[in-house]
Write a protein that binds this DNA or RNA. Structure first.
Length: 514
RNA sequence: CGGGGCGUAGCGCAGCCUGGUAGCGCACUUGGUUCGGGACCAAGGAGUCGCAGGUUCAAAUCCUGUCGCCCCGACCA
């Protein structure tokens, strides 16, 4: 305890003191990413990129398992393509990077663009239109359907305000694009992929999510309906962690994706698109990290365990290192969640405490400290990242090796349960307008420049579905409908809209959001 | 794009109001002590004070402009 009576933490400020700054400090302390020299763009550093690679690896497997194949489409989209779908234009036109020239010339020591393009190219903000153009060529007959394609790519959206992982001008994502012969098949695909995202979020990221449909105001530009998974972050704001869109025939009509059906009738295909991005890394940070830094959910952790040799006397060093290497080899031969256990041996010549804290901040699930005394007992001094930094226990080597998968899974489960309990604690059914406004009232700021204080959480309230009402509430409170939950337990059946007294089909999730 | 804050050593900051030639903590290097831990002592290295102009004998400090970052708004995955 410090003089102020607060426990010393590796991250300052703490979540309670200043959530926004805390978030940035965690990213810095865990060495996940940094701002680049290019405004709004981030450099994803190896530890952060490894998280993304694990996300990619698992999701890619799930996509393949559900019959999808990967392909790659151009980064550049002719402006005329984007113009094809009216709502789409409106949604993305304001945030596009546009390529207008194809050459640079040296004039007075400065490189200036020359060679203007006949038609400007947009750096893809999303790929519906360019992929649609390909689909139009690939689809002739109902026998060509369904077409189930995914692409891993970068996209650019020229954002006003950026935040590492959560909103950057360029980001990495995957976008699935599918075409189907019938509306029902496309709707089924939309829901199936929403389910895949929810399963991934909960089982791999240990991040509980609410599956639901977006209201008209929050819908993807050009979609008939948009579904999403929404998670609660530790500041009780909602994070849209993944989206799945039923596009109807809108894009098929815009791109001319037509096929001849069994009855020799020409019709437009029904399409879907769905995506998750590097935003998920931000979601993991804000779901699990604490005042000592990152906490990686074991299933996606770049390393499951780190071995920290404790050999302070030079004469012990060789013996300790040898023991550590043998243990590393033995642990790597174990399996966890369908892959070999990932173990790093950190034999850098650094002070023991400093080294240990680096790994705490990076969020590695297990720290294994091994010194001469442990070797004599054939045991390991183990720290779990989901417990306090000082809360370390001794475990027999054999037991560690045989139970490491169980240990990692128990950390994984613990993180999920903790996040779920947090969400439950801060989710409330609300039945009157007054209660609703009171629930979301901002605590007073101490200084004008203070970050927005942490607000109440999720409200489950009835809603008559009027977009104007939703806009008014957004205006008043900065609160929006995050989704119309699919889960009947959350929806709770018909009721009365507390704002209008009109009938409401079910409760919806209201919250402030990222 | 509007309002506010901040750019000083690798990192975190003080100094600025009241101009006088740059300092603290951590990190780094070396030597010693310590040895189940974010150690201690000593010595040392490291900064065109974001950038560009201006005022002045003299600018980190005052003035103007500019760039970047952060927070709050508008917009968004």
């Amino acid at each position: 305890m410090s003089q102020q009576g607060k426990p010393q933490t590796a991250i300052t400020p703490t979540r309670a003191d200043n959530y926004q700054d805390w978030y940035q400090e965690v990213i810095k302390a865990a060495d996940l990413a940094e701002n680049s020299d290019v405004r709004g763009c981030m450099v994803i550093k190896p530890w952060g990129y490894a998280l993304w690679e694990n996300i990619q690896r698992v999701l890619d497997g799930m996509f393949k398992e559900t019959g999808h194949v990967n392909a790659y489409f151009p980064l550049f989209i002719p402006v005329s393509f984007l113009e094809k779908e009216a709502a789409h234009v409106e949604g993305f036109a304001k945030e596009c990077a546009v390529v207008t020239h194809h050459r640079l010339e040296l004039r007075d020591g400065k490189l200036v663009p020359t060679g203007e393009l006949e038609e400007p190219l947009v750096v893809r903000p999303t790929s519906e239109t360019i992929i649609g153009a390909s689909f139009a060529k690939w689809v002739q007959s109902y026998r060509d359907l369904p077409l189930l394609i995914n692409q891993w790519a970068n996209v650019v959206r020229w954002e006003m305000r950026t935040r590492l992982f959560l909103r950057t001008a360029e980001f990495l994502w995957q976008e699935g694009h599918t075409a189907h012969a019938t509306q029902q098949q496309a709707v089924d695909e939309t829901m199936k992929m929403l389910g895949v995202y929810a399963e991934f979020a909960e089982n791999y990221m240990a991040m509980p999510v609410i599956q639901g449909e977006k209201t008209a105001g929050e819908r993807f530009p050009g979609a008939v309906s948009t579904y999403c998974i929404e998670a609660m972050m530790q500041d009780r704001k909602a994070l849209q962690a993944g989206t799945s869109h039923f596009l109807g025939q809108n894009f098929a009509k815009a791109s001319g994706i037509q096929f001849t059906d069994e009855n020799n009738q020409l019709s437009h295909a029904w399409t879907t698109s769905w995506g998750v991005s590097t935003r998920l890394v931000g979601g993991m940070i804000m779901s699990h990290a604490d005042d000592d830094g990152m906490i990686c959910p074991p299933r996606l952790a770049p390393q499951h365990a780190v071995i920290l040799p404790v050999a302070q006397k030079p004469e012990d060093r060789a013996r300790v290192l040898e023991y550590c290497r043998a243990l590393q080899k033995e642990l790597k031969a174990q399996w966890f969640a369908g892959a070999p256990v990932r173990v790093e041996l950190d034999d850098r010549d650094l002070g023991g405490g400093v080294k240990s804290w680096q790994w705490i901040k990076k969020g590695v699930p297990l720290r294994l400290e091994i010194g001469p005394r442990d070797i004599d007992k054939d045991s390991i001094f183990m720290g779990r990242r989901d417990k306090g930094p000082k809360e370390k226990t001794s475990i027999a080597r054999g037991e560690l090796v045989s139970t490491i998968a169980t240990l990692l899974q128990s950390i994984q489960d613990g993180l999920y349960q903790r996040a779920l309990a947090f969400r439950t604690e801060h989710t409330r059914e609300i039945n009157t307008k007054d209660d609703f406004y009171a629930f979301f009232a901002d605590p007073p700021k101490k200084k004008p420049n203070d970050p927005t204080p942490i607000h109440a959480g999720f409200a489950l309230a009835h809603f008559n579905g009027d977009p104007a009402l939703e806009a008014k509430i957004k205006d008043d409170l900065k609160v929006t409908v995050r989704c119309i939950p699919l889960d009947a337990k959350l929806g709770g059946g018909p009721g009365t809209c507390p704002f209008t007294g009109e009938p409401s089909k079910q409760r919806v999730v209201w919250a402030k959001s990222y």
